[in-house]
Nucleic acid binder design. Structure first.
Lengths: 223, 223
DNA sequence: ACCTGAACACCGTTCAAGT
DNA sequence: ACCTGAACACCGTTCAAGT
């Protein structure tokens, strides 16, 4: 109720969940998911590793908080001006950009689909599905279909960018994957062989939006 | 070139990748993903933990082999008799049943989208997309949209069934999740509030197939 | 109330040594 | 060629002890 005991220090150096999450994001961005350990985090924050547990329940909560911070930042503003379809596209692009600039977010979203960041996305999608005029029974399926697709591609990008960490850039890495695909028995894998050459040249963002548009078209026929 | 040195023992007790994978699947089914450790595996196989590394490169390869074994088992036979749409539905149901009976497969598929089991699924989907008459440019997007949706829902089921491990059955667990959703601010989460009551009563399989049908309908309009 | 940092109970993986 | 199992280099998490 008074004052000084509430605000622990004048410098910004006092520990808080917010500072911990910021430091975690910075480590995740620079070192990847494997680099985030409580020891590394404590080192960067110049505390003991146990101190973090005063502000955060465990590593899951820390990752969920970091993920939600990023997803919230990329959430498009005043979507109300757009048509429902355009709003859904804008929401999807926000998620794509979040993953594109913070690759660990992809793995975290798909690896923990009940965290708040996912609910935040579902809420945005659901609101637009309602605006689309989908009857009540179909709303759940339509919104979760969009969500599942996004989580699935999130998982793919996450692993893809993980593979790229070894020095090589995106295109050469995908070329290596395509080369491995071509080594498979062509009799048993005709489609993989047909599609492998597209892998190094395809545009992730375009693929992502093409999937969204496919589902939107499907939703449209169900009205 | 001769004989006895090739086949190491008359009993089935000699270590082999196949026996290791079988034991791993059994542990994964009974104890979940967290239960699969090289120590537990070695204990069940009555060897040293290092022996496993003679037959398997690392834990990733082991999990990929176990996953592919399960996915292959649930792959529908002679899909050629079916229409492309029905074939895709059959493929999707196979993946659903695989995950439904081995929940760890869901996390493994979505967590490692470049493993062979995923390629196997993509090959099946792609073949049917070609049969559907999709022009070459759209095939990649159509097949990967189906795949991504499946991986996304796979991730959700994996976590869901992970939550159910604590004694409670599926419905009561989902009721708990729905109750947590209802605690969120209803002003900011109208859709979540609207949809939460459906969570404990909805049918996973039906939701899965509804998503597939939505994407199939979308693909149909793009022809 | 908040922080310290050693200690605990694990991991995956390696490797000298055996057969 | 294949197996043993101790050892290594880590983890997340806990907790008595400090301030």
């Amino acid at each position: 109720m008074t004052d000084s005991t509430q605000r622990p220090g004048r410098r910004g150096s006092a520990l808080s969940k917010d500072r911990i999450v910021q430091a975690a994001i910075s480590i995740l961005d620079n070192e990847g998911a494997a680099g985030l350990t409580f020891r590394a985090l404590a080192g960067r924050l110049k505390t003991g590793s146990g101190a973090i547990y005063w502000h955060v329940a465990d590593k899951d909560e820390l990752l969920a908080a970091a993920t939600d911070h990023v997803i919230a930042k990329f959430e498009p503003q005043d979507v109300g001006r757009l048509s429902p379809q355009e709003a859904i596209r804008a929401l999807a692009l926000g998620v794509f950009d979040a993953i594109d600039s913070h690759p660990w977010v992809g793995a975290q979203l798909s690896g923990n689909p009940f965290q708040y960041a996912v609910l935040r996305i579902l809420e945005g999608l659901g609101t637009q599905v309602v605006a689309l005029g989908i009857p009540e029974k179909g709303r759940f399926n339509a919104a979760t279909a969009l969500l599942s697709f996004m989580l699935g591609l999130a998982a793919q990008y996450a692993v893809a960018s993980h593979h790229f960490r070894d020095g090589s850039d995106r295109t050469t890495a995908l070329r290596a994957v395509a080369a491995k695909w071509m080594e498979l028995d062509p009799e048993q894998h005709p489609f993989i062989h047909q599609v492998a050459p597209l892998l190094p040249v395809h545009d992730d963002r375009e693929q992502f939006m093409a999937g969204i548009d496919l589902i939107l078209a499907g939703i449209d026929t169900s009205r």
